[in-house]
Amino acid sequence: MNFASIRIITDDIDRLVEFYEQVTGVTAERPAPVFAEFVMPTCTLAIGHSKTAQLFGADAVVAGSNRTVIMEFRVDDVEAEYARLKPAVEDWVQEPTTMPWGNRSMLFRDPDGNLVNLFQPVTEDAMKRFAGR
Rank of each mutant, 00 (worst) to 15 (best):
F3P: 04
F3R: 00
S5V: 00
S5H: 15
I6V: 14
R7V: 15
I9W: 00
D11P: 12
D11L: 06
D11H: 08
D11F: 00
D14Q: 13
D14R: 12
L16C: 05
L16Q: 03
V17D: 01
F19V: 10
Y20S: 05
E21F: 02
E21G: 03
Q22M: 12
T24A: 03
G25V: 04
V26K: 06
V26W: 05
T27E: 05
T27Q: 11
E29L: 13
R30A: 01
P31D: 03
A32D: 09
A32K: 08
V34A: 11
V34Q: 13
V34P: 00
F35T: 02
E37M: 15
E37N: 10
E37P: 00
E37D: 09
F38K: 07
V39A: 11
V39P: 00
M40K: 00
M40C: 08
P41S: 08
C43N: 10
C43M: 13
L45R: 03
G48Y: 01
H49D: 02
K51Y: 02
K51Q: 12
K51M: 10
Q54N: 10
L55I: 10
L55A: 15
G57I: 02
G57N: 01
V62I: 13
A63Y: 02
A63H: 04
G64S: 07
N66P: 07
R67V: 14
T68F: 10
T68R: 10
T68D: 12
V69L: 14
I70T: 15
I70P: 03
M71V: 15
E72G: 15
E72Q: 11
R74M: 13
R74Y: 06
D76H: 12
D76G: 15
D76R: 14
V78A: 04
V78M: 03
E79V: 08
A80C: 05
E81C: 10
Y82C: 01
A83V: 11
A83C: 04
A83W: 08
R84Q: 06
R84A: 07
L85H: 06
K86W: 05
P87Y: 08
A88K: 13
D91T: 14
W92A: 07
V93A: 13
Q94C: 07
T97L: 05
P100K: 01
G102Q: 04
G102N: 06
M106K: 09
M106C: 10
L107A: 11
R109G: 08
D110T: 11
D110E: 09
D110L: 11
P111W: 03
P111R: 05
G113N: 05
N114F: 10
L115P: 00
L115I: 12
V116A: 06
V116N: 06
N117T: 10
N117C: 14
N117W: 04
L118R: 02
L118W: 01
Q120L: 00
T123R: 09
D125H: 09
D125F: 05
D125V: 07
M127L: 11
K128Y: 01
K128D: 09
R129W: 02
R129M: 12
